[in-house]
Design a protein around this nucleic acid. Structure first.
Lengths: 204, 204
DNA sequence: AGCATAAACGGACTTTACCCCGCTTAGTAT
DNA sequence: ATACTAAGCGGGGTAAAGTCCGTTTATGCT
């Protein structure tokens, strides 16, 4: 009469076949994205068929079309997170909070520009949150770094939210507006703007 | 052999019947929203039928479902814009740029919280831009005010974009996350956070 | 091994946004 | 007035997202 090993908080781990299917679906999705151009060629029906699974399964796994792209993005983001949490400074721990903030922005900008298409498709009108604001990792990390700066008289969670938005906003804008126009120096420009903003906000 | 009165830039004004239908559709949409609860009860078919028009007409007028909500929002925003451009200070012209910036944020937060449902429905995954970043008025106005502050060594358009995002981000977040949880003091909190941010960025 | 049960599966079904294209009509030039 | 034309109209048609529910299967317990 043991209690279940996963006490009560964790909603029970994913079943083995489910996990396998998830991986398989993600892999199939990647393949399809690589073959065909454009993220909107990836329909749920097509993905299901291509993967040799039922449509219901796809929806059970990812909930929504956008969910697939979020999953793909999360997947790619693992390495990035690793760098942030345990990599070398200034992105990883060890550098001054201010430097880490700046490094974080730079890295995130680069990452998202590399994944623009996925990022775009991971948005969704019907589903609650519009991207930038979502990304709990970004917000949490920024909040932590801000906390270390000991700015006084500040609403920390709110400032973190603002800065997260300020980081993603320009990205979303260029991601969806131009998509191809002058792409080279935009990254530099956004990075620089982020750096400036941080300096101003955190009293550089 | 006169040249057309609208030189070439303006793509020819809307035909009278078209304009009438647009107004009628918007009015009908408002009615339906008032009667039924929830924005997602408003389907294109239903709207067309209720208005006694063809479905094609609805799409011709607004392009997309989200387009309807954007139109509704724009419509309501007229009065707001009027206040910004010609109303009394500090929102309108006459006050110091810094005060106007703060007042603008306060007003926009209030406006969007009042129109949360529309704002939410005006988002759209397939359509390019995710809301906050869109709103060209906001960005333009903020850019103008920042310009008057003569901050030096700053990438003005980019800073305007960042601040626009920082203004809308928290809104979008609370709009879509809680939707109803503690609603009273959120407005105050966001307003205050905006004020703080502006002070920090613009060297208060 | 055998059993119980909660999770996963499949795929038909429903709903809805959005497209298409032949017909009608407002605006304009003669 | 008349004729011309571009814009607007209608509503059936399509495709894709998301739902439902009866069936199958992994997993933990005895």
């Amino acid at each position: 009469m043991e209690r279940p090993l996963l006490p009560l908080g964790a909603p029970r781990a994913e079943r083995a076949d489910a996990a396998r299917n998830r991986r398989h679906l993600l892999a199939t999705a990647r393949t399809m994205l690589a073959e065909q151009g454009g993220a909107d060629c990836l329909t749920m029906d097509a993905l299901a068929e291509r993967a040799g699974l039922g449509k219901g399964t796809v929806f059970r796994r990812f909930g929504t079309r956008a969910g697939i792209f979020q999953a793909l993005l999360d997947d790619d983001e693992q390495a990035f997170q690793q760098q942030v949490m345990a990599g070398p400074p200034p992105l990883g721990p060890g550098a001054a909070p201010l430097d880490r903030l700046i490094a974080y922005g730079r890295a995130r900008i680069a990452f998202l520009l590399d994944h623009r298409e996925m990022a775009r498709a991971a948005l969704d009108g019907s589903l609650p949150v519009p991207a930038g604001t979502e990304t709990p990792l970004s917000r949490t990390h920024i909040r932590m770094l801000l906390g270390q700066l000991r700015l006084d008289g500040v609403d920390l969670p709110m400032l973190a939210l603002q800065l997260t938005a300020a980081l993603d906003g320009p990205l979303l804008f260029y991601l969806s507006n131009s998509d191809l126009t002058e792409s080279t120096d935009i990254q530099k420009r956004m990075t620089r703007a982020w750096e400036d903003l941080i300096q101003r906000v955190c009293g550089g």
